[in-house]
């Protein structure tokens, strides 16, 4: 198809120019640090299970957000706007299917599973 960049150097494309060595290194260090912290918390059973669950989930969430920003460089700039927008549309769907499924089966299990039968 029509290609205005045929005569330009593809390497000059804004999406290539987004790449940032510092960003990648920061992303690497921060996410690995987060994962390591979570690991330490869990292996030493620092808190009660529920609290650990919440803390590690929060750490994972922060790690994913950091990755979106530092690795994918998602923001509202012209080059990345649609990618960001598409992701924002999809996030509620991820949450919905996991949360609603989990909630529904909690309720169903409580009402249909007879306890102490190996389930």
């Amino acid at each position: 198809m029509s290609d205005s960049h045929d005569h330009e150097n593809p390497v000059q494309h804004p999406e290539v120019q987004l790449a940032s060595r510092a960003g990648y290194v920061a992303g690497f260090i921060l996410t690995l640090g987060l994962m390591f912290t979570s690991l330490e918390l869990v292996t030493h059973h620092v808190w009660a299970p529920f609290k650990l669950m919440v803390a590690t989930s929060a750490a994972a969430l922060v790690a994913v957000i950091l990755q979106s920003y530092l690795l994918f460089r998602l923001d509202l700039s012209k080059a990345q706007r649609w990618n960001t927008f598409a992701l924002i549309i999809m996030i509620p769907l991820f949450v919905l299917i996991i949360a609603l499924t989990w909630w529904m089966f909690q309720s169903l299990g409580a009402r249909t599973m007879i306890h102490g039968m190996g389930m």
Partner: peptide, 18 residues
């Protein structure tokens, strides 16, 4: 794959070990 691994690592390996 790194993003997904964060989720796999947390949900399966960390939550699994709690």
């Amino acid at each position: 794959q790194a993003v997904m691994w964060v989720c796999v690592f947390t949900v399966i390996y960390l939550h699994g070990a709690i």
